[in-house]
Structures are given as C-alpha cells and as structure tokens.
Write a protein that binds this DNA or RNA. Structure first.
Lengths: 230, 230
DNA sequence: AAGTGGTCTAGACCACGTT
DNA sequence: ACGTGGTCTAGACCACTTC
C-alpha cells in the first residue's frame, strides 16, 4: 500500500475489528504509530479514527488512547422525511388538505411546553397528507405568531405551513421525539382507522433562541416504518 | 478576531443563517474567500462547512459551491439505548428475565428476512427487561448459531444474549427500523397491557458480511419515547 | 511530567461538475 | 478549460488525562 486515504484506513480498522484482530475493549495503536504503519500523515489517521469514534465504533480519550467500543451500535442517523418527497419518491402522488385553521389561545399544558406567556394567541392547524389520495399522515401544528411574523397573512391553503415556515422563519434548534400512541378521535377520523389503533408519532418542537416557533405532531398511518442502517 | 477555530466558524455561519444574512437557497462565499475573511487556513473552513453539511444545514457541490439548505432539519442522530444503562440512568434498578429459550427451525418468513437456507436451526429467546421490577421492554430474539458460534453453550440465563453477542460475535453492519404496532398476545402478557395497546417497536437485523447474526424485536411499554435534538 | 488525541497551518494536488 | 470542494502532507502547538 503506497499511500492510504482516510477511507482506506477506516476500512482496514473496521476489518481488524470484525476479524477480531482488535477486540472490543482493546486499545489500538496511537495515531503516530498508525501513521507510520500506513505511511501517511497523522492528520489522515486522525480523521479516520475521529469519524469512526463519532459513529460509536471507537472511543477516544487523550492520554489513554483509542479503544474498540464495547457496544458498537450506539448511534443511528435518521433522515427526517419531507413528506411530499417521501411520497413522491415511492411514485405516488402527494396531496395535502388543510382540515382546520384557527387562532386560539394556548391551552395551559401547551403554554408550558412551548415556553409561552399565559393565554398567548397561537395558530392551530390540522392537515391531512395523502398518498395517491389515501390518508398517509395527520399533522397537528401550533404556530407562535410572535416568532413567525407574517403567518397570519400567509395563504396556508396554498402553501403548506411547513414550507412557509422554512422559507420565512429562521430557527436555531429543535427537539424531536418518537413514540407510539393509540389513535385519538381526530387522528382516527382523519386517517380512517379505529380509535386506539397504534400510530407512529413524531413530535417536533422548533426554537429560535429562547422562543418557540412551532410545535407539530405527525401521526403516521398503520404500517409506517422509519428505517436506517448502521 | 485574531484566529478563528472551526467551531467559531460554525457558530458564525449558523448565526448568519439564523439572522438571514444568508437565506435558504443562497450560495455562500467559497472556502478561499471565507479563509481570508476569518484569517485562517482553508482546511479550517473546510472542516467547519463539511460538518455543517453533514447535519444538513448546508449543501455542498464541487464547482457550484456551498448553499444554505432549504430544509435544515434533515438528519437526526439517535442514541440507540443500552437498556440496562438507560434504566440505571434513571436511578432505577435493572433486571431481566429469560422467559423462553428454544432451538427451532426458522419459519419461512424469517428465513427469507434473515437470508437463511430452508429449515435452518435458530435459537429463539424471549426476554423481559424490567425497571424497578416493573415490565419495561419485551425482547424477542432469533440467533443464527452458524454465525454466532458458541451460543449453544452460552449460559444465557446469566449473561444476557445481547452482552454475549457483543463480546463474542463480530458484526459488520445492521438494519434498524422503528415503528408502532399494537401489542400481540406475547407482548401484552409480558408487559402487562391489553392486546392491541400501541407499542414502540425497534427491529434490528445484524449482519456479518452476507450472513445474519441475529434479529431482534424490542417492544417498549406504553409511554416510551426516543428523543433527540437538532 | 509525560503521553495521547485535538486542532491549526501553508501549501499542494486531485476529483468533480459546469461551461 | 476552469472553478469549486475533497483530501493529503509535514510540522507545530495545545488540551486533557493520567501518573
């Protein structure tokens, strides 16, 4: 091997772990030693090992070195689906229908979760997303107009709320939660299932600084799976 | 600003995107230009932008440059929980109970999914994981003894199957799926819920090369959530 | 105090995609 | 052909952890 790329090195490290040359818990050679072995710069080794550590295959600590992780499947990267693209990607046609649009003062529980003052006015939207005309996902969204200026004038029947927000409101970070819940009456009616049917739920709470922009609950119809590889 | 670190640069890029100095869809300056502006090496800019692109905030293409992503929340990193640590991390005591352990020939559907020959012999385990003595998660696992040599002699009542596998069987990759399902009779009985209760399900299929090592379905009790930040 | 990874530099060449 | 990001180098200094 003349000169190794960081990907070559990653492949070789993976191979050594898989073939038990390096076993879980073992300390592997230092960057300097590996650089000599692979005839490359230390920075190249560093990048290779750093990325493997980010995926959880290795654990690195200054002074004590780099060890093979005891539990290599610790992190998974999920692609957050964009519903329209997800549906079109299957060759189906996407449509969405705005079922309900109101301005209401926030319920107490929501005020706490969204870090709002008492009786803050919110936009509340209920939307059904469809694939080939059949219910696919039911969206229940709350928008804080103080953070999302202009939302009151937006034509949300034409542009989806999500697209409008992406285009018009900056965000700093978000919380995401995945869980399973039995369908409530709204979800059941919209998705055409019986109340209590197990639904895959994604909750997303989006922030700009200390202010919440929007909270959305996505309820997917039966059979929905999120998949990833490690 | 004397010299900027790659993290300083990431923070500043985030700030410019959040404050709409750079808007979604905009092309930002080239690495060379940014290196001049920040008075640092191009490699530093490269690392800052590369990492932001990995999280989905930026999109990079040779020749056309770096653009602000239209949909910044495209990827989420989930920590795959290690059940024992997850429970102990809440200050609860962890226990698990091996409910059933058999050697059976694989059902046809499983043979296909696990890429096995016909009537391949498998180890089938059913385990209940408990927090403070209460049901927490029900695990249904199939192990391929051809890939997991020694499993037949392992004392799986003492060491959990997962720990035994981690210590003794190398893996190359895995498929993971998340979904919601109504509890079947086994799950309901083990978790102490009624049949049909919505459960959060994680399926994991683990490979060594072209051979499957183990397939496991984890069924979490009601109320379980996986959370992450973006 | 010493060993290890973490980061940065200045420069170089390459790969890809657009023109 | 050219412009952009992708990667690599040889060396340096720093930060953290353990001794």
């Amino acid at each position: 091997m003349s000169r190794a790329s960081y990907q070559d090195i990653q492949a070789e490290v993976r191979r050594r772990i898989q073939t038990r040359v390096w076993k879980p818990g073992d300390t592997i050679p230092t960057e300097v030693d590996l650089a000599k072995e692979f005839n490359c710069a230390r920075a190249t080794i560093n990048r290779a090992l750093r990325e493997l550590a980010e995926t959880g295959l290795l654990e690195r600590r200054r002074k004590s070195g780099t060890r093979v992780s005891l539990n290599p499947m610790r992190k998974a990267t999920l692609d957050i689906p964009i519903t329209r693209l997800e549906i079109e990607g299957r060759g189906q046609t996407y449509r969405h229908k705005l079922l309900e649009s109101q301005q209401v003062s926030a319920p107490d529980a929501l005020s706490a979760e969204m870090n709002l003052g008492r009786s803050q006015m919110l936009v509340h939207l209920k939307t059904l997303h469809m694939a080939d005309g059949r219910p696919f996902m039911y969206e229940d969204r709350w928008i804080n107009p103080k953070a999302a200026r202009g939302i009151l004038r937006a034509k949300l029947a034409e542009v989806s709320a999500n697209e409008w927000l992406v285009q018009n409101v900056p965000i700093s970070h978000g919380d995401i939660a995945f869980q399973a819940l039995g369908a409530d009456t709204d979800q059941a009616a919209a998705l055409g299932v019986t109340v209590g049917t197990a639904l895959f739920i994604i909750d997303r709470l989006t922030w700009m600084g200390t202010q919440t922009v929007t909270k959305v609950r996505l309820a997917y119809g039966p059979g929905y799976r999120m998949v990833t590889q490690i």
